[in-house]
Design a protein around this nucleic acid. Structure first.
Lengths: 229, 229
DNA sequence: GTCAAGAATCTGTGATGGCAGATGCCGGAG
DNA sequence: CTCCGGCATCTGCCATCACAGATTCTTGAC
């Protein structure tokens, strides 16, 4: 099972029950990263509470965290909404990714061992089959797992946390873009990255990650034609 | 009857009371950024609630946000603490700042008008007098104001939000470092930055911000001698 | 039919109370 | 003196209720 838990890497060995708000936040994060929420839609504390079988209190706490992470905006008009998608915001998101992710990958490279590299290849395969099956959600989950399998080789990083925040905001947008232009024309930069890792070539790895992000940048250009709201 | 407009709320704009948790978060953020909390210390929801005259609920919500921002760690052992200071963490914080802040400054440069430049000079003066008076808290507040007066010229940025998160984690550490090595040997890169802004020289501005951060890096090196925990 | 007033509902927000685990203090046994 | 058992206290956590603004639906007037 791929790690779907973004932040909270707790609950290691002890049989200590994880706080409910932590579970709610993990579930919501998964939905955001896999694009199961659409920009502009609204969430409600009561609705989510009932859906997840908990009270409002842990849901509110989780939503507070998501608000701090920029995944949701809390309007004073008694509305909690997913930020609407604008080309400017999308572009800035990608530029921040360009700034952080190649650096994170290059730094993490020395810590990627053979086992992790095998897992990377396995995840990349699952991404391929997800694309073949038109499984958008599976593709996005795999894409997330792939990138963070690299970055998290260097553990406990502040840098990785920042990148995670970007992905939380990024997921809902990507969903929309993929829904418009499809995933067919995806060039697989992941294979290039895997080869760079195998060769221990940090610069090549950084370039591959950068190219992967730039591909997303191109997608928005292509989808900008039909994008108006 | 010429249907009276249901509301002519154009002019006065009825003031909407800000949520309590928002105020609590703002106050706590200020304390973190100005170094009024010490690494390793613990906070309690009830204590802060009583101190600020509110219930636990808004305090918990504010602390959730601060946890998402990395300013506090929420231990499952019924403790919520300010992260302890380690040289590695301090170094990574500074490296993330190096990555983001020069870029943010260079991007914001075209949006800095004369009025903002004047405010920058005024803040820089206040920093000088704070140093002269040994007012550490005033110095840190001024330093924060100075940097974000630059970055926020380009409004509503995701990048700025990431930088703010870094500063929230940075404040408690800086307090400790300054307390150890003092603020006497601070070279004022701010003046260099102001001149670069006046000249419209983006590269020079980026270099000045970078040098300002590197100075902090040097400080930790100097204080590493007496740093053990 | 149109449209506005009002009621029912839904929203985030905040306070309260209580649960269970962790901490600390204090006194008694050795 | 040391040690340790138990109780008082403090902790985060969560459910519940109440409140006020916003939204939606209904209803009644014209």
């Amino acid at each position: 099972m791929p790690s779907t838990r973004p932040a909270e890497r707790a609950a290691p060995a002890r049989e200590e029950p994880a706080p409910l708000h932590s579970g709610v936040h993990a579930e919501l994060s998964r939905r955001f990263i896999t694009g199961q929420v659409t920009p502009g839609s609204s969430l409600s504390t009561r609705g989510l509470a009932e859906e997840m079988g908990v009270s409002q209190t842990p849901v509110r706490e989780a939503l507070s965290r998501l608000a701090a992470e920029g995944a949701v905006q809390i309007r004073s008009k008694r509305k909690i909404i997913v930020p609407t998608m604008t080309p400017e915001r999308f572009r800035e998101l990608l530029r921040c990714r360009e700034l952080l992710e190649p650096e994170a990958a290059m730094r993490a490279l020395p810590y990627i061992d053979a086992a992790r590299l095998r897992r990377l290849k396995r995840v990349d395969d699952s991404i391929g089959s997800a694309i073949a099956n038109g499984d958008l959600q599976g593709y996005m989950q795999g894409n997330f797992d792939f990138h963070f399998l690299i970055y998290d080789a260097l553990p406990r990083g502040i840098l990785n946390r920042l990148i995670e925040i970007l992905w939380l905001q990024f997921g809902p947008y990507m969903r929309v873009v993929y829904g418009r232009v499809g995933t067919a024309n995806l060039v697989d930069q992941h294979e290039v990255a895997i080869n760079a890792i195998g060769a221990g070539d940090a610069d090549a790895l950084g370039r591959a990650i950068l190219a992967d992000i730039r591909d997303g940048m191109d997608l928005i250009g292509k989808s900008a034609l039909c994008m108006l709201a």
